[in-house]
């Protein structure tokens, strides 16, 4: 049986699917001042599961937009077209479950190419294993 730790090295998604893995990666990102990227990624997943008929879903979309898409470490890594698409969607109040998908993909690619690679060689990871 494959150990959880060896799954972490398989992919970023395997790491994030494991509670200890996600927690350790979060600690690493806190140290790198990049934890917003991970919180945004989880917020997108959480948003996708929300019921669009509930009024609070629009409030969450607005909160994700304000907190991450407008101003944060996430914002500057998103394509301008992606940011304006989300802004327009909220302005028109025409939210849908997939409205953050493109932004989430851009941030996931960023983590896969940068922070995830750094994490796998970090002392925080090496000490854990």
């Amino acid at each position: 049986l494959e150990s959880p730790v060896s799954r972490w090295t398989r992919s970023l998604l395997s790491l994030l699917a494991d509670q200890d893995g996600a927690q350790l990666f979060r600690s690493f990102l806190e140290r790198e001042a990049a934890v917003d990227t991970l919180d945004f990624w989880f917020a997108c997943n959480g948003f996708r599961q929300m019921d669009l008929r509930e009024p609070k879903t629009l409030r969450v979309a607005k909160a994700i937009h304000k907190r991450y898409v407008e101003h944060s470490a996430v914002s500057r890594h998103l394509k301008p077209a992606t940011r304006s698409y989300i802004k327009d969607t909220i302005k028109k109040q025409q939210i849908d479950s997939a409205m953050f998908d493109q932004a989430q993909t851009e941030i996931q690619t960023l983590m896969e190419e940068n922070s995830y690679q750094m994490f796998l060689t970090s002392d925080i990871y090496l000490q854990y294993i």
């Binding site: 494991d18 509670q19 909160a63």
Partner: peptide, 20 residues
């Protein structure tokens, strides 16, 4: 009535992996 921050935190927590 939850604030926007509370709703956001709940949304993030709901997507976090659960204990094995």
């Amino acid at each position: 009535y939850d604030s926007e921050d509370d709703l956001l935190q709940k949304c993030i927590s709901s997507a976090m992996p659960k204990k094995r």
